[in-house]
Every structure is written in C-alpha cells, then in structure tokens.
C-alpha cells in the first residue's frame, strides 16, 4: 500500500489529494506525517505542500459542490479523525468522476460519512460558541481557555468577531496550543509561550471578575427547578469533559 504523508495543514492535505490523482493512485492512504508509524509492508511518500496545487483542488471542488458541500469537506478535515483523509479522497474521486452533484447521494458510504463527520464538527463548533467563558484580565483583555474535541477555532472566529466587536479577546486552544486574538481591528492566530500557567498568576484578573463569576454561579443555581431534576438530560447537554472550563461547573 502506498501512503502519502503530508504536513497536517489544509493545503498539505489538498496537495496529497492532488498527488494521488496525478500518480493515478486508486489504492492509497493519506496520513499526517507527524502521527505516522512506518511499516515494512507500505511504501511512504512525503508530499511537499504546494499552494498552487491545493488551490487547483479547491477550485475543482467548489465547481462540483455547493457552498455548503464545500464547507462540509473542510469541516471533515478539521475533525482530525484518524483516516478521515481516506474518506475525503474517496469522496473527491466520486465527485470528479460524476457528472452530477453527488453530495446528497447519502446511500454512498463516503458521502454519508462526510455528512456525518461534518455534523459532529459543526456540533463541536456550536458547543464552543456556547461554552467559551471569558474572564476579564486587568489589562481589559477577555480571555478564554478551551479544549475542543475537534480543531474548531477556524470555524468560530467569525462568530466571535461579529459578536464582540468592541472588546479585545483571546480564545486559546490548550490542546493544540494556539489561539485566536482580536485586537478591535482584526483576528489573528497566536501561540503563547507558556512557562507559567494562567491560573497560577495572581492579580492578572480585573477586580470585578470574581464578583461576576459568583453572580453567574448564583444565577445558575437559582434558575434550576429542583422538582424537575434530570441528571441524564443535564449530562447529555453539558458532558463532563467540558466542565473544566465552565465557570458554573468547575467550582463544584
């Protein structure tokens, strides 16, 4: 089996797909170089990321997919699921070999998988839009730590830029060690040198921050109707893995 290795970036994966088409490979796998374990039975090929080639794949896909369909394709890539590249490759082959739009041919395994994974990624995006909890720092920066299941910061950027247009904010993905920062003008990607954990640094929060956190916790407690307690439903909507960064849940 031939394995195409790429550098984990979006243009990188598209370059790998381009390469596979170029070499007329039908039976191959596409993997991130970083996470790859070489095996004696496979032939590894390192693909150099080429933005021109990537752009050509994008143009082709956009011609054959609706705007939504293309967005789903990108969302699947962001899922970072093991082997999702193979699904996307199979999907791409189907797309380019059919005259008609295939994105709704849900009886095809690749099409259904893409729509399902895109849905999970979208759910995670939506969760992050809900679960980000900003804390006001003394330099008037609103700061939030997150650890999403999928790499959804690129997908939530627009939402936060529109919503919090008049405050500086930073949302930091602790798992993937990068964040998005808004400086009242535009959003940029940033990486922090973390020698000291934020929580250990005393005095970095605004003096009003503890008050509003306790007001929020009070509110959360009092808006609950005890006679209607439903733990199963509660956990279904707010799974435990998100509690760590939720102001109202991490004090418990």
């Amino acid at each position: 089996m031939i394995i195409l290795l790429y550098d984990h970036t979006w243009p990188g994966m598209l370059s790998a797909i381009f390469e596979a088409f170029d070499r007329k490979l039908t039976n191959c796998m596409i993997r991130r170089a970083r996470a790859h374990m070489p095996s004696a039975f496979d032939q590894d090929i390192e693909v150099t990321t080429n933005t021109m080639k990537a752009a050509r794949v994008i143009t082709g896909l956009k011609k054959k997919l609706s705007a939504d369909g293309f967005h789903q394709f990108y969302a699947c890539f962001l899922s970072e699921l093991h082997g999702i590249e193979d699904t996307l490759f199979a999907y791409t082959r189907l797309i380019f070999s059919s005259k008609d739009r295939v994105e709704q041919a849900f009886a095809n395994a690749a099409v259904l998988r893409v729509s399902q994974v895109a849905k999970s990624v979208h759910r995670e995006k939506h969760r992050m839009e809900a679960f980000v909890r900003f804390r006001l720092a003394s330099d008037s920066l609103f700061f939030a730590e997150v650890e999403p299941d999928f790499n959804v910061l690129p997908l939530i950027l627009n939402h936060f830029e529109k919503r919090y247009a008049d405050q500086r904010w930073l949302i930091y993905d602790m798992k993937r060690n990068y964040g998005i920062y808004y400086d009242l003008e535009k959003v940029t990607e940033v990486t922090l040198q973390r020698t000291v954990g934020v929580k250990e640094t005393a005095g970095i929060f605004h003096e009003e921050e503890p008050l509003y956190e306790s007001l929020w916790n009070d509110y959360f407690k009092h808006v609950n109707i005890r006679e209607r307690k439903n733990t199963k439903l509660h956990l279904q909507h707010v799974p435990r893995r998100y509690w760590k960064h939720l102001t109202e849940k991490n004090k418990l």
């Binding site: 809900a130 529109k162 919503r163 247009a165 008049d166 405050q167 959360f220 808006v223 939720l246």
Partner: peptide, 28 residues
C-alpha cells in the same frame, strides 16, 4: 445585526449552559 461596532449580535440562538433539571440557559 451588529452593524454599529457595538456589543452583540443575534442569530440562531445558543444555549450557553443547562441547569441540573436539563433546561437550557440562554438568557438572563
């Protein structure tokens, strides 16, 4: 829509958390 560079924007609505009775908390 937030077209005055102010605070906030509305859209499809978001449930920011859920109380222990399983009801959504979206608004104060």
């Amino acid at each position: 829509k937030n077209d005055n560079k102010g605070l906030g924007d509305t859209g499809n609505g978001i449930c920011h958390t859920y109380t222990e009775d399983g009801r959504c908390v979206s608004l104060l």
